Each structure stands twice: as structure tokens, then as C-alpha cells.
Simulated scan of single mutants.
Amino acid sequence: AEALDMIVVPLVAFDQTGARLGYGGGCYDRYLPMLSPACQIIGIAFDEQRVDHVPTDAHDLPLPHIISA
């Protein structure tokens, strides 16, 4: 994980704060904290996946970048 410069994260829904709703397995929630701080984390989605609010728990990390179209 330390050698990665960028990772693209899929999602089901996201909000304006960068909170993401994943697919329910928690794989990314466990993996993202292991990445180097220099690694760019980018969510990828369609505009239709934007919602007003995604409920989060303490272990949920907001995505610093989300690209949608």
C-alpha cells in the first residue's frame, strides 16, 4: 500500500462533505487508513449518486476528492 500514488474508490452514494456510502463490506474502510498520506484517494461516481446526507460511523473516512459526471 505504501507504493501507491493514487487509488480510485467506487461508491454507491456521496454527499457534499465527501462522505461515501460503499457496498457494505467495509473493505475500503479497512484499507484506506493503511495508505501513505501522499496517496491521492479519489471517489468516482455519477452525478445521480449525490445525495443530501450520507450517514456515517466513527470508522468512516470522508473522501478528499470525488469525481462525478
Rank of each mutant, 00 (worst) to 15 (best):
A1H: 08
A1R: 04
A3T: 15
L4Y: 06
L4I: 08
L4F: 14
L4R: 10
L4T: 02
D5F: 07
D5P: 04
M6P: 15
I7C: 13
I7Y: 13
V8R: 01
V8F: 13
V9I: 10
P10E: 11
L11W: 11
L11T: 15
L11D: 12
V12A: 03
V12Y: 07
V12Q: 05
A13E: 06
A13G: 09
F14Q: 11
D15P: 13
D15E: 09
D15H: 06
D15G: 07
D15K: 11
T17Q: 13
G18T: 11
G18W: 06
G18K: 10
G18F: 14
G18H: 08
A19D: 13
A19L: 10
A19N: 08
A19I: 07
A19V: 07
R20Y: 04
L21A: 06
L21I: 05
G22A: 15
G22Q: 14
G22K: 01
G22S: 13
Y23M: 00
Y23P: 13
G24D: 05
G24I: 00
G24T: 01
G24F: 04
G25P: 02
G25K: 13
G25E: 00
G26T: 08
C27M: 15
C27K: 05
Y28W: 02
D29C: 14
D29W: 10
R30W: 09
R30G: 14
Y31I: 06
Y31Q: 12
Y31E: 12
Y31H: 11
L32N: 05
L32E: 01
L35F: 03
L35R: 02
S36T: 03
S36H: 04
P37L: 03
P37Y: 07
P37A: 06
P37K: 09
P37I: 07
P37E: 07
A38C: 07
A38I: 04
A38F: 14
Q40F: 05
Q40H: 15
I41G: 09
I42G: 05
I42K: 09
I42S: 03
I42F: 02
G43R: 01
G43N: 02
I44P: 05
I44F: 01
I44S: 14
A45K: 12
A45L: 12
F46H: 14
F46Q: 02
F46P: 00
F46V: 11
D47C: 14
D47Q: 14
E48K: 12
E48V: 10
Q49C: 01
Q49P: 04
Q49E: 04
R50P: 08
R50L: 01
R50I: 11
R50M: 10
V51T: 06
V51F: 09
V51A: 10
D52L: 06
D52E: 02
H53D: 09
H53S: 06
H53T: 08
V54F: 00
V54G: 01
V54Y: 00
V54A: 01
V54P: 04
V54H: 00
V54R: 05
P55Y: 00
P55S: 08
P55K: 04
P55A: 03
T56W: 05
D57K: 03
D57I: 02
A58L: 13
D60K: 08
D60V: 05
D60T: 10
D60G: 02
L61W: 12
L61C: 10
P62S: 00
P62A: 01
P62Q: 03
L63A: 06
L63S: 10
I66W: 10
I66N: 15
I67T: 12
I67W: 06
S68G: 11
A69Q: 12
A69E: 15
A69N: 11
